[in-house]
Structures are given as structure tokens and as C-alpha cells.
């Protein structure tokens, strides 16, 4: 295990080194060297240039993610529980999923303005579907004997949902959240691309206009870090949830 980490580190150093060499022979406009990017990043972080943008993007991602995944989860429960609603709504769900949601971004800007609301809505819409899908299928595929057990124990629908279906479906639901987290970053950034003056996505567009490629790379790195932190956070929650009862299986 430790050896793999070592190789991974060696690979990273090798890539950076290779990049540095190549960038030495190129214009900074096309491919800035890692050292230049790093300096830009550091400078921006120290003098607080990035702070407002980071906060803005983070806020959009987190709010969109919370809103979208909560609604997706709730709709998933309703559709998982009611066969009528599932059959009634699923064509619409499939249709709306087939629409490239990022292509709707201009429409949302039109509806919700250039402020934060439109980005949160786009992000929420993107996060909605992975949660919806995973929740619907997770709570439907509960062990039949366990359902019979709950019938035997005279549990009502609500109790069965809370004490059996949701906990049993949790691994699937959390897997949906993991997908949603990554998509949330995409949603927020695309929203900022299309309209906005604040946020890391807007900064990328601005740096293109200013022909400041190192700034663009610095913003990309920040976005990657945000995405990775959020992903790790969900992964951590997932592991915490599974820990007590998956212990034996992991050995």
C-alpha cells in the first residue's frame, strides 16, 4: 500500500517536471509553467484576490447541492413509495433528464437573473437527478423477507420507510450523493461562465479575456481542490455510515 503511494508521488513529480520542461519552450499564454501557476495562485491567495471568488463558488455549490439533493431525495422517496406517482412521473423525469441541463443555463439566467440564484438553481437541477434515481431504486430493492418482517411487526408505511427502507438504501443513496457532488461543481462553474462577474467560473472567463493563462490555471486548480474536498467529505460520511456493520466484510 505504501509503495503505491510512493509510486503515485513519483508519478506526480514526474508529470510536474515534464510539464515544467515543456512549458519552458512555450509561450506563457499557451502553457504556463507549474512554478508560474503556483506563484500566481499563492499571490492571489495571500492578497485575498481569490477569497471572494472562492466563497461565491463554494456557496453556489453547497447551496445548489443541498437544495438539489434534498429535493431529489424527497422526490425519490415519494416516487419510490407510490407506484402511481412513479408511473405517472417517470416519462417526465426521463425527458427532463435527456435534456442537456447545461443547455438550460441561459434560460435560467433569463429567469433568475445574473445573481447567485440562477447558479444555485442550475446546480440544484443537476444534483437532483442522481439523488432521485438512486433513492427510487434503493428504497424499492429492499430484501423481501425484511419487508415481511416489518409487516409481521405491524409497522406502518412510515415506520417501514424510516426504519427499514431508508437505512437499507443508504449505501445507494450516498453513492448518488457522491455523483451529485462532482456534478455540482460543473453546474456552478457553467452557470458562472454564462453570466456572472463573481466566482471561479467567471474568473476563468475573465482570465481568457485578459489573456492571463496562469490565472486561468490557478482558478482551475482551485476548482479541482474544491471538488476533491467535497468528494472526500461525502466519501468520509459514507465510510462512517458503513463502518460499524461493514467491518467484517472489509477484512
Amino acid at each position: 500500500m505504501n509503495q503505491i503511494r510512493l509510486y503515485s508521488l513519483v508519478l506526480f513529480i514526474f508529470i510536474i517536471g515534464f510539464w515544467e520542461i515543456i512549458a519552458g519552450n512555450m509561450s506563457e499564454l499557451v502553457l504556463p509553467a507549474p512554478t508560474v501557476i503556483f506563484l500566481t495562485l499563492l499571490e492571489g491567495l495571500i492578497d485575498g484576490y481569490f477569497t471572494a471568488h472562492i466563497i461565491r463558488t463554494m456557496l453556489e455549490i453547497v447551496l445548489g447541492l443541498l437544495l438539489g439533493s434534498f429535493l431529489g431525495f424527497a422526490a425519490g422517496i415519494v416516487m419510490g413509495e407510490s407506484e402511481f406517482l412513479r408511473k405517472l412521473l417517470s416519462p417526465y423525469v426521463i425527458a427532463s433528464q435527456a435534456v442537456p441541463k447545461l443547455a438550460l443555463a441561459p434560460l435560467f439566467i433569463l429567469w433568475f437573473g445574473f445573481g447567485m440564484t440562477s447558479k444555485v438553481v442550475i446546480t440544484a437541477l443537476i444534483c437532483f437527478f442522481p439523488l432521485l434515481e438512486n433513492t427510487v431504486s434503493s428504497i424499492q430493492h429492499v430484501d423481501k423477507q425484511k419487508l415481511e418482517l416489518f409487516r409481521m411487526l405491524k409497522a406502518n408505511r412510515w415506520q417501514t420507510l424510516i426504519h427499514l427502507k431508508i437505512p437499507a438504501g443508504m449505501p445507494g443513496i450516498l453513492a448518488g450523493l457522491r455523483v451529485a457532488v462532482v456534478l455540482a461543481v460543473v453546474g456552478a462553474v457553467v452557470g458562472e461562465f454564462i453570466g456572472g462577474s463573481e466566482g471561479l467560473g467567471a474568473l476563468i472567463v475573465a482570465s481568457q479575456g485578459m489573456m492571463d493563462t496562469p490565472l486561468m490555471f490557478a482558478s482551475l486548480i482551485l476548482l479541482t481542490i474544491i471538488g476533491m474536498i467535497l468528494y472526500q467529505l461525502v466519501y468520509f460520511v459514507e465510510k462512517r455510515w458503513e463502518k460499524p456493520y461493514m467491518k467484517e466484510k472489509n477484512k
Binding site: 430484501d143 423477507q145 426504519h163 437505512p167 437499507a168 443508504m170 455510515w241 460499524p244 456493520y245
Partner: peptide, 8 residues
């Protein structure tokens, strides 16, 4: 037939 215990 199976223990049907709740793993969590």
C-alpha cells in the same frame, strides 16, 4: 429462513 437482521 434468513436471519433478516438489520445490519445497521
Amino acid at each position: 429462513q434468513s436471519p433478516t437482521l438489520l445490519e445497521w
